[in-house]
Amino acid sequence: MPDADTLFRVAALNTAYAACIDADRLEDWPAFFADPCLYKVTTADNVRMGYAAGIIYADSQGMLVDRISALREANIYERQRYRHILGMPLLHPGRDGLIVAETSFLVVRTMRDGQMDLFVTGAYHDKIATGPGGGLLYAERIVVCDSQRFDTLVAIPL
């Protein structure tokens, strides 16, 4: 039985992560992860088939930083924002000192002209470590999207 404190701390971490993306504080996003780490955006079908590639894949904090600098400096896409709605974390038995958690999410995307769409739903499959300062960090965050269809582009991380 997971203790209430762990559940609360994971939920708080997830909430802070989502707020960071939704408020466009993307420069703060890599700091939610340990270094090295694994961040991958994939789909339920790819997981079921055992396919290793994702549409976004990073195994270092540097690669997460590069995602954001490419987004800010290089890539062309129309102005848009996300709104994450999170479920309560489901805690699995921990392994190797890591908290293992699974959290449902729903992301609504709003485009610059006001068009709103239910963009992605899925679950975060997380392994969470305790950082040097005692705070929690994602050692691994696999974003398992329910659908294999991604409407035109996924510019901002999920």
């Binding site: 590639a53 976004i56 991604f150 035109t152």
Partner: peptide, 23 residues
């Protein structure tokens, strides 16, 4: 290969723009 897949697909550093420019 798995790392370089970041260049292509719906979130590709390169391909995301090809996905949008037709629109």
């Amino acid at each position: 290969r798995i790392k370089q897949a970041n260049l292509v697909g719906p979130a590709g550093f390169v391909s995301m723009e090809d996905g949008a420019v037709g629109g």
